[in-house]
C-alpha cells in the first residue's frame, strides 16, 4: 500500500493535499480485492454455465455429428430433429400432466394457506389457533422423504393410486407450512388501524380477509406460489411412488424414462432436458425478482 503515496507523476506532484493519500490507498485496496473476488466470480460462472451451455448446443446436433465434433463447439448445422423426437415421444402429455399437477396443487394450497395465515394473525391468542400454528412450524421440519410410505398407504386406501390427484393432494399438504409462515409474517405487518376501520364499517372477517388482507398480501402470495410451483413442477419422489402408468407421468419422471429410452442418443437426451427446463427459465426471465424472493422464501431477509 505504501507505494501509492510517493511521486505522483509530473506537474501535479504538488497538487494533492496530504489528506488524499489514505483515501486513494483504500480505493486501490478495494480494486485489488475486486480482482480476487471478480476472478472467483467468473470461475463460478464458468462452473455454472458450462454444463448448461453443453446441454443446449448438444440438443441441436445430429447424433452422428455429436460423436465426431468437439463437444464444446456449437453445431455447424442446427437440427431440430431431437426436439421433434422428444415431442413425438408423448412430451405434450407429460407436460400437460405437470401443468395440471402444479396448478392443481398451488392454487388450493395458496388459498387455504392464506386463510389459515389470516386466521392465525387475526385470532392471535386463541388456543386452538396457537396449536395449529405450532403444528405448522413443526411441519417445516418434516421431510417428505421420511413419510412417503404412509402417504403411499393413504393414497392406496383412498383408491387414488396412479392418478394425478395422488400427486396433488400430498403436494398441497407439504406446501402449507412454509406458505403459512411467510404469509402470516406478511399479514402481521398490515397496520392494525386498517383492520379496525374495516370493522367499524361493519365488514365481516371474511370480507376483511378478501377486501383488505388479500390485496395487501399480493406480493407474498406471488412469492409463495412461485416457490411452491417450482418445487412441485420439479418434484420426483411423489410421482415416482404414487403413479405407475406412463399416462400419469410428470416431466421429471418422464425425463428419467427418456434417458433410458434414448440411451446413447445424447443429443435427444439433451433436447428433452432443455425442453423441460425452458418453461421455468422463461418464468425466471419474466419474474426474476419475485422468483428469487420466492425461492428463498422464509430464510433470512
Amino acid at each position: 500500500m505504501a507505494t501509492v503515496t510517493p511521486t505522483p507523476v509530473g506537474t501535479r506532484a504538488t497538487r494533492p493535499p496530504a489528506s488524499h493519500a489514505p483515501r486513494k490507498s483504500s480505493r486501490r485496496r478495494l480494486r485489488e480485492n475486486n480482482w480476487v473476488g471478480g476472478g472467483f466470480g467468473w470461475i463460478w460462472l464458468l462452473v455454472v454455465m458450462l454444463p448448461l451451455y453443453w446441454l443446449v448446443i448438444t440438443s441441436f446436433k445430429t447424433q452422428a455429428n455429436y460423436f465426431f465434433t468437439n463437444p464444446l463447439k456449437p453445431p455447424t448445422e442446427f437440427t431440430f430433429e431431437n426436439y421433434q423426437l422428444v415431442i413425438e415421444s408423448d412430451f405434450v402429455r407429460y407436460f400437460t400432466n405437470s401443468v395440471i399437477v402444479t396448478a392443481g396443487a398451488i392454487l388450493p394450497a395458496t388459498l387455504i394457506s392464506f386463510m389459515a395465515a389470516y386466521a392465525i394473525v387475526r385470532g392471535a391468542g386463541n388456543r386452538f389457533l396457537r396449536t395449529v400454528n405450532g403444528i405448522f412450524l413443526m411441519g417445516l421440519a418434516i421431510p417428505l422423504q421420511a413419510v412417503v410410505i404412509p402417504v403411499y398407504l393413504i393414497i392406496i386406501k383412498m383408491e387414488l393410486y396412479d392418478t394425478l390427484q395422488a400427486i396433488i393432494l400430498p403436494s398441497i399438504a407439504f406446501a402449507i407450512p412454509l406458505s403459512v409462515l411467510v404469509l402470516s409474517n406478511f399479514i402481521r405487518d398490515v397496520p392494525k388501524e386498517l383492520f379496525e376501520s374495516m370493522r367499524m364499517d361493519g365488514a365481516t372477517e371474511w370480507g376483511t380477509m378478501w377486501r383488505l388482507a388479500f390485496p395487501l398480501t399480493r406480493p407474498a402470495l406471488v412469492t409463495v406460489m412461485i416457490y411452491n410451483a417450482v418445487g412441485i413442477w420439479n418434484g420426483f419422489l411423489l410421482p415416482l411412488i404414487l403413479t405407475q402408468s406412463p399416462e400419469q407421468a410428470t416431466i421429471p419422471l418422464a425425463l428419467a424414462t427418456f434417458q433410458t429410452q434414448f440411451g446413447v442418443n445424447v443429443p435427444a437426451v439433451a433436447a428433452s432436458v432443455t425442453l423441460t427446463t425452458v418453461p421455468i427459465v422463461l418464468l425466471y426471465a419474466i419474474g426474476r425478482r419475485q422468483l428469487v424472493s420466492g425461492l428463498t422464501a422464509g430464510f433470512g431477509k
Binding site: I112, S113, M115, A116, Y118, A119, I120, R122, G123, A124, G125, N126, F128, L129, V132, I135, F136, G139, V151, I154, L169, P170, I172, A173, F174, I176, P177, V180, T204, E205, W206, M209
Partner: peptide
C-alpha cells in the same frame, strides 16, 4: 377470534391428514 378459527381448518385438516 371465534369467527376466524374455521378459516384455519382447511389447511389444518389437510396438513394433519397428509
Amino acid at each position: 377470534s371465534g369467527s376466524v378459527v374455521w378459516m384455519a381448518l382447511p389447511a389444518f385438516v389437510m396438513f394433519v391428514f397428509f
